[in-house]
Design a protein around this nucleic acid. Structure first.
Length: 550
RNA sequence: GCGCCCGUAGCUCAGCAGGACAGAGCAUCGGACUUCUAAUCCGAGGGUCGCAGGUUCGAUUCCUGCCGGGCGCGCCA
């Protein structure tokens, strides 16, 4: 990674100029906002000026003097109040392009999480109905984060927690049983809290199509019980189908029910009790989460003997720990953020390190239609499903859109705008750049212009500013991925890809790849191959395809 | 009332572990296709970075307070 190499060079310079004990001070190697300020800018003079009690400008120029002879840079200058601006030499950029061509899709493979077993749990939608747009955001985000963690060396498990126990499930089964009965002329009373969405009727009809009136032979109560399984499995299959269409695949589908059935809940209580954080009050069993900063203690087992969702969740996380993950990342919607302190408290009570559980809270998605909010309610059933949306705008546009914004911001999704803009979506801009490159390469091959493996040295022919700028931008790819993985702010990658596409389109306009000069042509083919590699690797990280033609 | 998130160009959003004149896409206006895909490019207009203080050589970025918006404060999940 270029910035790391530069960091090393600067540290060496400091060691030589000011002594070894100063060589490990913290400083920034950043990409300047303005092109004229170089490829990289270093703020080390400001940091040193405090320690050395010297003018930063003076320190800067001393460092510049030291670096001037380095073959890494074509120009080094001190600027402004004391920034050291570095301009990369073309040799270094040529080396970088060679590296890209050599490593291909592994160019951005970094090792910051090497050897780490990380679990990412996301979506985890209740299997009582179709997924909505909010789920889509977490599906896209979670899967992309997982891909980036993998690129960073981690061994990642994608997991979906199925809330197949508890009252929601009962209500759901009863709702379906009612609709099913109605299809055969019976009119049981529809439950007060039942799900009224049309999809319930569809599930009932699906069951009727598949099994006929078979379930009418048993009484309503038995029917209800049975549907907890039959209807639930249908929904689950449906969820999997939609997620598959989004290219989101889970390694583990974890059933909450299995925790209840295997006695894991009781075990969890016992474990917390042994640590001394459990007490009884008002007939209920409590966890003293206030010991860990929660605002109030929480119930584990209700006075009626029923466990809370919270207890099941603790048991679930104990199971995660026992499966040997070094880190588990839970992705939750903002409507659950109040739940974080108690969950974190339970992990601390159990003595799991602070690093073990990380909860990422993502803000909500507002669905708009023509600028006006659309309610998303399972109860009334008035909503646009994720599947419908994907059919409208396509998987690529959908995924790109979802991961392009910070998870800290609520996302306004205007369905009409999405329809209207789907052709102008930035994703096509990026994909078009890729398709264009493929087209040039095809054309070159038609004309018999092929670059052999031993001709990689021709990258030396690349000396135009447009060419070198493009390589410079390519060199920023690995650290972009690293930043995304580290900060969990995945949206930096789409921004980067748009910038790369923009630079390429601009390059395309100014510089002809296939031309008179064979060496230059070959060199440029190498260059655009580099762009193609980075672009398709980047797109694949967000689960978007790289079309060869458009 | 308390807690979390947000408030940047007409719209949707980047930038924020402090850094040098604030960016992109869309929209608007004006140019560029007999040449590797015009789903493209080049140019123009457009911003008191919610408001007020503070810390700093330097604040859109950090701190405090206020204003505005979203979400949450169950022996629900």
């Amino acid at each position: 990674m270029l910035s790391k190499k530069i960091r090393k060079i600067i540290s060496e310079a400091i060691a030589n100029l000011y002594g070894k004990d100063l060589s490990n001070i913290e400083f920034q190697v950043e990409r300047p906002r303005v092109r004229e300020h170089g490829d990289f800018a270093v703020n080390v003079a400001f940091i040193l000026s405090k320690k050395l009690k010297q003018n930063p400008r003076k320190i800067g120029s001393d460092i510049v003097k030291y670096l001037e002879t380095s073959s890494y840079f074509s120009k080094v200058e001190v600027a402004g109040p004391g920034f050291v601006n570095l301009f990369l030499s073309s040799e270094i950029l040529h080396d970088e392009l060679r590296e890209i061509l050599l490593f291909g899709e592994n160019y951005a493979q970094v090792d910051i999480y090497k050897g780490m077993k990380i679990q990412v749990e996301f979506v985890s939608a209740n299997p009582v109905g179709p997924m909505h747009i909010g789920h889509g955001r977490w599906a896209a985000y979670g899967d992309t984060l997982a891909r980036m963690l993998e690129k960073s060396g981690a061994d990642v498990t994608r997991e979906f927690y199925i809330n197949d126990a508890g009252r929601q499930m009962d209500i759901f089964a009863e709702s379906v049983a009612c609709r099913y009965s109605e299809l055969f002329g019976e009119k049981p009373e529809f439950p007060e809290e039942g799900y009224r969405g049309h999809y319930i009727v569809e599930i009932a009809r699906e069951i009727a199509d598949k099994y006929g009136d078979e379930f009418m032979k048993i009484n309503f109560e038995e029917r209800k019980q049975l549907f907890k399984d039959v209807a639930y499995k249908m929904v689950l299959e449906h969820l999997k189908k939609v997620l598959n269409k989004m290219d989101v695949r889970f390694d583990v589908w974890f059933s909450e029910r299995t925790l209840h059935e295997s006695g894991k809940l009781e075990q969890a209580v016992k474990m917390l009790e042994e640590k001394g954080f459990v007490y009884r009050k008002d007939g209920a069993v409590w966890f003293r989460s206030t010991d860990f900063g929660d605002e109030k203690d929480r119930v584990l087992i209700r006075s009626n003997g029923e466990p809370t969702y919270f207890l099941a969740d603790i048991a679930y996380h104990i199971d995660k720990k026992e499966r040997g993950f070094d880190k588990v990342i839970d992705i939750w919607g903002a409507d659950h953020h109040g739940y974080v302190p108690r969950m974190v408290a339970s992990m601390q009570a159990l003595g799991y390190g602070k690093e073990f559980l990380e909860v990422i809270i993502g803000q909500m998605v507002n669905l708009l239609s023509g600028g006006k909010p659309v309610r998303m309610s399972k109860r009334t059933g008035e909503m646009i499903t994720l599947e419908e949306l994907m059919e409208e705008v396509g998987k690529d546009a959908l995924r790109f859109f979802f991961v392009s914004k910070s998870t800290d911001s609520t996302l306004d999704f205007d369905i009409d705008l999405a329809r209207e803009q789907s052709q102008k979506n930035p994703v096509y801009y990026v994909q078009y750049a890729h398709a264009r490159i493929c087209s040039i390469i095809r054309k070159a091959e038609e004309e018999g212009l092929k670059v052999n493996k031993d001709e990689v040295e021709l990258v030396k022919e690349l000396n135009l500013a447009e060419e070198l700028d493009l390589i410079y931008l390519l060199s920023l790819f690995p650290e972009t991925v690293e930043v995304c993985a580290k900060t969990r702010d995945v949206h930096h990658l789409p921004s980067y890809l748009i910038e790369l596409a923009s630079n390429f389109h601009s390059f395309y306009q100014k510089v002809r790849v296939i031309g008179e000069d064979e060496k230059k042509s070959k060199a440029r083919i190498l260059l655009i191959n580099g762009v193609k590699t980075v672009m398709s690797t980047g797109l694949s990280l967000i689960g978007v395809s790289s079309p060869e033609r458009m």
